[in-house]
Design a protein around this nucleic acid. Sequence first.
RNA 1: GCACUCGUAGCUCAGCUGGAUAGAGCACCCGCCUUCUAAGCGGGCGGUCUCAGGUUCGAAUCCUGACGGGUGUACCA
Length: 565
Amino acid sequence: MKLKETINHAIQDAFRKAGIDATPISVTEATKPEFGDYQFNGAMALAKSLKKNPREIAQTVVEHLDLGGIIAKAEIAGPGFVNLWLNPNQVAASCDNALKDPRIGVAQKADPIKVVVDYSGPNMAKQMHVGHLRSTIIGDTLSNLLDFLGDEVIRQNHIGDWGTQFGMLIAYLEEVGEDGNTSLKDLEQFYKDAKARFDADASFADKAREYVVKIQSGDAHCLTLWKKFIDISLGHCEEVYEKLGVNLTREDVRAESFYNDTLAKVITDLDKAGMLQESDGAQCVFLEGDEIPVIVQKSDGGYLYATTDLAALYYRANVLGAKRISYVVDARQSGHFKQVFRVAKEAGFVPEDVKLEHVAFGTMMDKSGKPFKTRDGGTVKLIDLLDEAVVRAKEAITAKDDYTPEALENLARIVGIGAVKYADLAINRESNYIFDWDKMLSFEGNTSLYMQYAYARIQSIFRKYGKEVSGTIVLTDELEHRLAVTLLRFEDILDKAAEDAAPNQITSYLYDLVTLFMRFYERNPILKEGVDEQTRTSRLLLADLTAKTIKQGLAILGIEVVDKL
RNA sequence: GCACUCGUAGCUCAGCUGGAUAGAGCACCCGCCUUCUAAGCGGGCGGUCUCAGGUUCGAAUCCUGACGGGUGUACCA
């Protein structure tokens, strides 16, 4: 439910009844349990403009507050804090309602929009490495989240298939005379070999450059080779997506090459808009206040990254009809996107009401604070990281219990991949972060396994109980109350996370929720002797809603749960 | 040089629409498995929130400056 909004309405009502002519600032979650469930801190802020003592204002608000609704108790503390305790009956009833709802009380947006989420965007010339992890899973999470909230999400995988390096690769592919099935198995090696050849042999380099022109002008033979190359490369990416459990398919691919035929139009349209200017032989757009221009056409006539992005923006806003376009790309490109977004708006490629955002994320660093590389200077292949995660998970699981080989395989996959994804998503996306193999594959503390474990424990209780639960929730102590209120906060968390495109807000929430549940579970017995029927039913229902919330939250993060661990 | 970004516990990180005594995980120390899964729970240790000013009733949070790390800076993507 929209809990915060409900409480804010109650405060607004009190303002109206008290005749205070001001819009109250939003309530916030209480910073400590002693301060209740929520707190209203607006009295201090209003003191100056109303020329009143903040405690007086707080007093007036409290006197006019309806204590029969969502709020049960309000207390003034300190300089004018208003601490609010929620009505346990209402909280319990809202939890009961959430349990009856397949969406566990999270509303579908009343005014859904079309959103394009551009993510992953691997380079077809190279195997995906750990640096591609962030864009792929942050983008996937954002897509899942918006989709769950009711928006129409259009996933776009803007793969790099059109750069100068492709001439080199095609030339090499032809030279080694492969059908593509053997030599391309190790793309990394293939790229290195081609590059070595390119650097060592001038005539090969010339040939490579010829191929670039040929591909881009539509030479049939070259295009065939190129397509084969892309097909195989994409296959490798799909293998990674499959392992990662990422919802990207061929249907979502709109490669750079897709925009090739519209690039010339970008230039003429910019010219028509009077924004084009020649500089050193290149076609540029000079933005007011910017030192460097956006170059859209090279002096040799070739197009650039910015040109393709402008074409893509046009397509997404006008053909796909998106009202929000989110680019999940490394923070290093923020300058580029700032410029491209401005050009697109000023040239009218994108209507004014379309929200363009760069969902930037920090760089992955090594332990000494340098951009991440392996010992030998290369990169860690994403597929290797994922395989290792599954191996380690398998070891951990085997030590714990006996499983059939199939069950073990499946469990190890869910646990291992989940750990990798969670470790990455739990970090504030804007800051750089240190890649730590062991931390990423850890199963202790704030990890996905903690949530999966809690989920499995709850399922175990229900297996043991073996009956349908019917009844209602009655909150009997402080811990249950806090757990229930936390459960009701789910929708607020998702809304905020969607607005900020911040998956770590979801992981933080889940961790808080599960920590509360674990404490509840330790302290409040459910099936044990001496628990009366009413209490047992209520606790079962609370556990059930907790499990459903964990499952839904993890599903948005692209992480699965299991019934038994 | 200019621009952007970050600087919080030994390590890795939350918190940043200003609110009460700054929070986790890891590591370290102590306690809890005859009773719903100990991959767990409870307790302890650990901080001048880089520094200096400013705004404010109130600053880790906002502003200015310094220092330190990272990144970007016209025909790569």
